[in-house]
Design a protein around this nucleic acid. Structure first.
Lengths: 351, 351
DNA sequence: TGTTAGCACTCTTTTTCTTTGAGTGCTAAT
DNA sequence: ATTAGCACTCAAAGAAAAAGAGTGCTAACA
């Protein structure tokens, strides 16, 4: 700001090294980091005094802060940002690690959703964090089949299957038993009118139109159509899943009251965060707004298929998350999933 | 013990009143209760000194204890037991309360499972505790239908429906596409061999026998049968559900670390507790063994249909739970559910 | 000019000591 | 049998003191 020269000197190699070291240490210990600790690191060859000077500068620039005068420094919001964007050295995954992660993706039916789900569970185990999953956007998820199956007196199971391999069912209780003919009509009618419709677009209005156009079958079959509508809603609502929340509870640096509040309306909260507009991997801090849990961060990575976003996988953890480990994990997993779901297509084309 | 006369005098009316008052007060405040507090209650007409004497006796008998010399008394394990069994005056439900609880049971398809589930959610809201549900025992849950539905290249959805109205599905990926004839055979074969079989009994052995007896269809259809087997397993494993755990987290008197451990293996832990052998309503304390969360209690109530246990509904909360309120709630709900699911049968028979 | 040793200073954390107060148990009186 | 009175106990709250970690600044040094 003050002098052009300054601007360059601020980011000099040593200061970057020191900032990185502070963040590294803080991530491990959770305690404010002092000059002495940094000075004792092998690849820092200056005295604590020098480091103190540099840290003072880093503080002025807003990368570090002191909880109180006589404490060490902790990274600020922008400190973390700089660390993640430029300073941290993301560990290369070893072959064993890759193998372990591959094993996590070994599910019998490798649909995008199943893979993402499986990766999510593995991630929350490995990182001791919560994970968040946004399955394929309902925009891209298309109804492939609607079935009705009798299952008792006046009881019917409605079944909806989507292009993303998702299945949902619902029990309907009707006023009368359906004749075979009615059931056949229903199946045909559904196939003709709903096949290929994105679950997103199946509004109540559309259903009402369909009911109106059913003619004689209207009275008997309307309740079923209502059920279909509810099924589609279910697909929309259940878009986002958070798992491994218990890992957050175990942490002392995260307020458990806030976790409870977060769990109560996680969908609302996370929805904004999983916006499609950003890059393929992004790190969001609670300071970025909307996020309920103080002092937490979320790393989100997208999975694509044919260029379109097929799902999103993320990790929610404390601010002082081991980014250098978690980010490569997340990148590797989403990378593999992306490969696998496009391989799958090739597979089919080969045939 | 020492003198016969003692044994009678120990349970004299006043002492019972005092014990009840101590437990009542402790349940509300969570603080040790002193003689003065008790003396100030309207229907106690003796002095603090007298109460102190009585409390000393109650302590000797093991119903009360002191955290330290100069503190009030808190109930012991057996204190609670006596309170629940004999002393507490369970509140009669008002009409409004009954109506509210009835509303909670207003689901569109009143199967036993759906009702219990719904009651469970309502209960955890109303009591601010966790609730536990054991759905109908797989022993009584019988396979009514197995369907296979094609849903893409070599992809099939298996659907299993049980007598308790439960539905579960699974995607199977086969090596080859099935012919219509194969699918029809499968449906018929399932209907002939599995209809009426309790999900409990569908072991791998049985499936292997079925596969062996399939003749020419063996190779193609074996993977589907394996899927059927897994579905049945799913019914067995998912027997117990705990919900509203977050309510426990909010409580300061329950260790959150223990909650986490409890959630990790809730099924194991709760399974023992929901033993069918006891009476229809039982209260279990963590001291009774097996239960991980210290200082907690669980109230369990059974729902029957035709004399058989059709499900179990319970509340998990702190030791100092408001039993006088929660027990009537639980009893009313399970009572209503029991009525509703037998009504339903009558309904069907009327027709 | 950049680096460093030295030192006074600040502010949290820990420890120790003191005070307070709720509640008891016992004794003697009713 | 009940109760008032009183000495006693012990946790919890508060105050004061000591310890310790880390800083910023100054002055010396290469």
């Amino acid at each position: 700001m003050y002098l052009q020269k300054g601007v360059i000197c601020l980011l000099d190699e040593r200061k970057r090294k020191i900032l990185a070291a502070v963040v590294d240490a803080y991530i491990v210990t959770g305690e404010p980091v002092g000059s002495k600790t940094i000075a004792s690191l092998p690849d820092i060859r200056v005295s604590p005094a020098t480091i103190r000077n540099d840290m003072a500068v880093l503080e002025q620039l807003g990368y570090l802060e002191q909880p109180h005068t006589s404490a060490g420094r902790i990274p600020t919001y922008s400190g973390y940002r700089l660390y993640i964007d430029e300073l941290m050295n993301a560990k290369e995954l070893s072959d064993e690690e890759k193998k372990m992660l591959d094993d996590c993706l070994d599910v019998d039916v490798p649909t995008a959703d199943a893979l993402i789900e499986s990766a999510s569970e593995a991630l929350s185990e490995l990182t001791h964090c919560a994970t968040v999953v946004k399955n394929i956007s309902p925009k891209f998820s298309v109804i492939t089949k609607v079935e009705v199956i009798p299952t008792g007196k006046r009881m019917y199971v409605l079944l909806m299957i989507t292009s993303s391999g998702n299945i949902r069912n619902k029990v309907c209780r009707l006023e009368f038993d359906l004749t075979n003919e009615q059931m056949e009509f229903f199946s045909r009618y559904m196939a003709e009118n709903l096949q290929g419709v994105p679950v997103d677009e199946l509004s109540e209005e559309i259903v009402e139109q369909l009911v109106a156009a059913m003619g004689t079958y209207m009275v008997t079959l309307a309740p079923l159509l209502k059920g279909v509508c509810e099924l589609a809603e279910g697909f929309r609502d259940n878009e986002i899943k958070v798992s491994g929340e218990k890992n957050l509870l175990a942490r002392r640096d995260i307020n458990s009251g806030q976790i409870v509040r977060f769990l109560e309306n996680k969908n609302e909260v996370v929805k904004n965060m999983l916006d499609d507009s950003f890059g393929d991997l992004q790190v969001v801090f609670s300071e970025d707004g909307g996020f309920v849990i103080e002092n937490s961060s979320m790393i989100v990575s997208k999975i694509r298929k044919d260029g379109e976003i097929a799902g999103t996988l993320g990790v929610i953890g404390p601010m002082r998350l081991d980014y250098a480990k978690v980010i490569p994990y997340l990148e590797y997993l989403t990378g593999r999933i992306t490969e696998m779901i496009s391989e799958e297509d090739q597979d089919d084309e080969d045939k």
